[in-house]
Design a protein around this nucleic acid. Structure first.
Lengths: 149, 149
DNA sequence: CTCTTTGCAAATCTTTTGCAACTTG
DNA sequence: CAAGTTGCAAAAGATTTGCAAAGAG
């Protein structure tokens, strides 16, 4: 299989010394191309089209590698982990009803300052972060507003 | 069993319409008295001294009720949930080595402003939050600094 | 008396691991 | 070649659920 060597995913693999197997690249690209914060199952489903024999364990292992390399971020939830293709500081708006997770970038400057500040603490060496708000997205709030008139 | 009716835990139960069974009060007090962000197992162990027959399922169910009522916050992690007796906005410093979670309150004013700001969004109804930094605590950073000289 | 909670066991789910065969660097 | 990966199946945990008995309001 010929593999493009110049895209962001390939570059990230190079920089982090990850082996560039077709499966791993497909998994990394699937997450990178998806801003819905997919679950492991989601990723497996996305990739299965091109790699029908790929096992769920491989998806788990690869996602773990990518998280350890800092290429993506994982967001553990009670019902299973979600993956965020953007590991830089931003807020996640998490809907408890429909499970949607939307990035809010309006607060990035504030969070960047905050991260810098916490990173300079002598008593803690920062290497990751997570900023979540939980609640109801617009459409779920609407649904709940007038359920049984 | 006679139950004090004036402490914060009892009050929270009243306000949220939770039944005040001895088991539930003990679980709530165990979490309230612990600032280490205990796991479900931790809570079970703490309460077993007084209630030897209490099952893990009861701990799970009760903690869920308390989270739903907003009395405590849960922090899902890959290895299981941790519980935070302080549901108000603050930063958690999570050590990836030893698993310690320490509250950092220096940033509370900033987070309170941030929370107010996000809460006023027309497209999202906030009812919870989570602000984590991951990395190494002082003592784990020290251990890693000179492992094999 | 009614509805909730408890305790125990079984069931579900998510995530990790052991291993042999196969690839990548 | 040597070390890292893949697939598959089994294992390990974490969390939930079904039910009958007990308890709270």
């Amino acid at each position: 299989v010929t593999i493009k060597t110049s895209d962001p995913v390939s570059r990230a693999f190079r920089e982090h010394g990850l082996r560039r197997t077709p499966q791993r690249l497909a998994i990394a690209r699937a997450v990178a191309a998806n801003d819905r914060h997919p679950t492991v199952q989601d990723v497996h489903t996305m990739v299965r089209g091109d790699f029908p024999t790929m096992s769920l364990a491989t998806v788990y292992n690869t996602l773990r590698s990518l998280v350890n390399a800092g290429v993506i971020a994982d967001l553990p939830f009670a019902g299973g982990a979600r993956f965020d293709s953007d590991p830089s500081p931003h807020i996640n708006l998490v809907c408890s009803d429909c499970g949607s997770i939307v990035d809010a970038h309006e607060y990035d400057p504030m969070l960047t300052r905050l991260t810098r500040s916490v990173s300079s603490r002598p008593d803690f060496r920062v290497d990751g972060h997570r900023f979540d708000f939980y609640g109801r997205c617009a459409s779920c709030a609407r649904d709940t507003a007038k359920p049984a008139p």
